[in-house]
Amino acid sequence: MPKPKVAFYWCASCGGCEETVVDLAEDILGVVEKVDIVLWPVAMDFKYKDLEAMPDKSIVATLLNGAIRSTEQEEMAHLLRRKSRYVIAYGACAHLGGIAGLANQFPREQILKFNYEDAPSVVNEQKTRPQLSFAHNGHNPTLPALHHVVRALDQVVDVDYYVPGCPPTPKITSAAVTALLENRLPPKGSVIAPDIALCDECPRKASKPTNVSFTHFKRPHQMLMDPEKCFLAQGVVCMGPSTRSGCEAACTCGGMPCTGCFGPTSRVRDQGLKIMSSLCANVAPKEEADINKVLEGIPDPVGTFYRYGLAKSLVRRKVTLPVK
């Protein structure tokens, strides 16, 4: 029997998800033995035209990481969708928009201007910007255009499964790959991680207050945090209650609160609003001015509650931003 064909692809991502695949360490060798990798730009040399030449649905699964931000990424997402039986959104950016999705707070022009002109490390006196096409030696090379909106993968193509995390842990990656190879896949559309909040597997759970009442919010750099006590009991925002488990509480075990990279459980539509609702309802004061004073401890609610989920939130993007 021929080995199943698998593709790895990256879009608007940082490279961390690729690292996780490599972090499977010896396990990756087992995977490589069992599959035929037909595309993996970070590690192997393939040409897009080889992919185009493949019959439709001939790839068993594509694991795609990164958000969709450019015309090229959009095009590759469509191409891989066409060639693959299963498309798997791998990592928080493909799943929810991720850190890249935070760009949905700013106009494209502001981002381009900063990166090509104003950033302190940039030397670009002519203010050159990448052009979509230009003439060179009788050729007309083209470059991808940057979209105005950052999108999660399922806002562009149909997605079969999601592997959450920023990045996904080796453990849930192997679980997903094994499920795939052994054909024990959950129902379409599933996030391949337990459908229960992170607190469930957090070692600090025992000290999680049942009746929390916040008199202040502190950010991790503003205090010495107790290494064992639930962060909420210390007045530190922890996204654990509205975040899916499966990471084995990597952050809270490592001394930092959860920032929500595994996304919401299936019962939550908007992860950021859900945690905001539960935290803010439990602020101690009852008068507007005093309430606001406590809430000032969260200076950037969008960046805090939608650290990874802005693109997939109900609003998706700052609504006043242009698309032209």
Partner: peptide, 20 residues
């Protein structure tokens, strides 16, 4: 109603940040 008021205070800040 107090819970509502507290959520509402933060919600107003969040919608402002999102251009509403």
């Amino acid at each position: 109603n107090y819970k509502c008021l507290r959520r509402f205070q933060m919600l107003k800040r969040m919608v402002a940040d999102l251009g509403i």
